[in-house]
Structure formats: C-alpha cells, structure tokens
Design a protein around this nucleic acid. Structure first.
Length: 366
DNA sequence: CAAGCGTGGGT
DNA sequence: TACCCAAGCTT
C-alpha cells in the first residue's frame, strides 16, 4: 500500500527547500536526468552515520579530493585513511570504509552494486545505509529509516511506544509512505524534514508540509515524541599516557590494535583505562627517561564513559631503533614519528587533547 | 540483542 | 553544568 498524498506534499516542499550539500544532486538537476555518483553517496552516508552534516562537510571535501574514486580509496594506505578520519569518531567506520572499497574493487569490478541486498553484504553498510544508497544513487523504492524518519513517523502517527522497541512499527509505517516515484528525493526529503522542521525539540509544526495529516500535532503530543527508554549514566575511568620527544624532535607514538575503542588510530603509549574505584595499573614507561607528571589532566567523554587522563612528559630522549612514518606504523606497534611527519590532526580528539596539554608544558620550559 | 563504539554542538 | 542529540553498524 502506498500513500501518494503525503509523499506528494513532502516532495513539493523538498523541491523548494532541499538543503544544498556537496554530495547531493538538487531536485531540479535530478529531474533533468542527473544521477549522483554512488561512490560519493556511499562515502557521505557512512560519514553521516550518527554524525551531523556540519561535522561531515570538510571531511567529505578532503576525502574526495584525495581519493576521487572508489578505486583510489581502495588503493590508499590504511594509516593515511585513519589519519584523514581522525576527529570524526566511530573509527570502525573508517576501517570498514577501506574494507568496503576493496571489496567493491575486488568483487564488483570497482562498480557499486545497485540492490539493497548486495549493498547490505558489504562491510559497514547496514539496513539504513543500504536503503539510502539504493534509493538515492539508483532510484530504487527502498524505505530509508534513520533517526529522523523514526521521529517523523512517531509524530505523524502519534506512536507512544518507546524506542528502540518501536523501531519495527515505525519502519512499517515508513514503508507505507515510500513512493514509487522519486524515491531518492523522497528519502532525502523526509530526513531534511526531520532535520529542519520536525526537530527533536520545538518542532515547527506551523510550517510543516505534513501539518494536516499529523496525528501528534492534532493531539498536541509532537514535542514529547518519540518516547525513549532512559539511558544509564556514564561511569568515570582513569589512565595515564606518556608523551615523549627525542633530541631530534621525533615523537614516541603507537597505533592501537585494530579492534575495540579507537581501534587502528594513532596515539600515545599508556596504561589501560580503568574505573576510578580500581587501582590504575602500574604505569610502565615506554622508554627510559625522567618522566614528569603534568598538573593537568585531559578530560574526555566517550559514548559510554568519562575519561580522566593523566599525562607524563619527557624530552631529549634517544630515538633508539630509528624513526618511522606514522602512516606505516602497524596496529599494536610503537615507533618514533619524525617531527616533519607529525600532525596532531592525525590523532583522535582525546589524544590531541593530551598533546595540547603536553605541548603547553613543553613550550613553557623553552 | 544489548552493549560497545566518538565527537561537537545545542540547550 | 550536564545532559541530549546526530543520515547506525557490529558482535
């Protein structure tokens, strides 16, 4: 069953109000037959997973400049891709991005498959992203369900079941509205609606193209939907990192193991991170030196815990074993990264915070 | 299948 | 300040 009236009203709104994004083909261009590049659609959708449009823009521009095609990306060095992703978060996305690019080259001749099922089998592409690529890049009538769509459907149909339990019901409702005509524009239109009109707080119901059919607006319940099950509070963990510099200005760094928190990213050697109620593990320095403890800690919040990171610094160390380009550092390995190759922006934010504090302390010595 | 997995911006 | 939230996927 399809609902042409509601989708039509939304598409009319989208023709006028579609937001301009670097990876998007405007409704007018799309009507003229222009199709988006599946590579750019895929890259943008992966970057946009749990991430705001504002945060993605610059990363998308850098990635497409460095690697214009999926073949270019597939041929890139792992460490280069991890460095470019640094700061965007959820680093499994970057690891899966490379796996996916290489699978597209190896198994699909460098051409993205155009069905939801085939897309779903690729690393890092789940139900949402498979539908989004299929609809947006290939104009297939797949139903796209992200956080925006869940919120819009919960309000349009006044669903009070809390998420995530309500997800199947909201997905079914979303499918009823998905049109056969212009499914790609429609998918982007619902998400634009959720991002600009049907917002989590203070929805602008007065100017909504769906104000008439919206059940929650009629009931006055829109601002309180969707209901969500309460989340647990975050515990605090504590750890120590060592930031060491050689006589030649090289930095002693490590690449974290492939799996787990910050997997595959560049950072500083240190202890495990444990609950404050536990004993911080013996801080065994990664090199012989006179390490001194900084008076300030790096504070950072991850998805499921707060971190307080103590920082030890030392300078003038001998770079025993020679220097190593950061991008070639293997997961689990440590090495001296030469001064000219070191960029703080290659590290995840928590490690950059620790470095900023260390640099201030070192500069103060000079 | 509940939990693990980042970060920056808004209120 | 301390939440809440964002175009989710994997295990």
């Amino acid at each position: 069953m399809r609902d042409g009236a509601t989708s039509g009203a939304l598409l009319d709104w989208y023709d006028i109000h579609a937001r301009d994004m670097p990876w998007r083909v405007s409704p007018a261009d799309r009507a003229a037959g222009v199709r988006p590049d599946p590579y750019r659609v895929w890259l943008s959708e992966v970057m946009l997973q749990q991430t705001t449009v504002a945060a993605v823009r610059d990363y998308f521009a850098r990635f497409t400049a460095l690697w214009p095609t999926v073949g270019d990306l597939a041929a890139a060095e792992d460490g280069r891709v991890m460095a470019e992703w640094a700061g965007l978060g959820y680093y499994a996305r970057a690891r899966n991005l490379l796996k996916c690019a290489r699978a597209v080259v190896r198994d699909h001749g460098g051409v993205f498959p155009d069905t939801r099922e085939a897309l779903m089998s690729l690393p890092g592409i789940g139900p949402y992203t498979a539908s989004a690529i299929s609809a947006i890049a290939f104009d297939r009538a797949e139903t796209v369900v992200d956080g925006n769509v869940e919120r819009v459907m919960a309000r349009l149909h006044d669903v009070h079941t809390p998420l995530p339990a309500a997800k199947p019901e909201l997905t079914a409702l979303a499918a009823l509205h998905t049109p056969e005509a212009r499914p790609g524009d429609y998918a982007q239109a619902v998400m634009d609606l959720g991002a600009t009109i049907c917002t989590p707080r203070s929805p602008a119901c007065g100017i909504c193209p769906w104000r008439d059919p919206c059940a929650a607006r009629a009931e006055g319940t829109a601002p309180e939907l969707p209901k969500k099950t309460p989340k647990k509070q975050k515990p605090v963990r504590h750890g120590v990192v060592f930031i060491g510099r050689s006589r030649d200005g090289a930095w002693l760094m490590e690449r974290r193991p492939e799996s787990g928190l910050l997997g595959g990213t560049l950072g500083w050697p240190g202890t495990a991170w444990v609950a404050v109620s536990e004993e911080v593990p013996e801080a065994i320095p990664p090199a012989e030196a006179e390490w001194r403890l900084l008076p300030a800690e790096a504070l950072h919040t991850f998805t499921h815990f707060h971190l307080r990171l103590s920082i030890m610094v030392a300078e003038g160390l001998p770079a025993s074993g020679g220097e190593t380009a950061s991008a070639t550092l293997r997961p689990g390995a440590q090495g001296w990264v030469p001064r000219g190759d070191f960029r703080p922006s290659d590290m995840p934010t928590v490690m950059r915070k620790a470095f900023d504090l260390a640099r201030s302390a070192m500069d103060n010595d000079a």
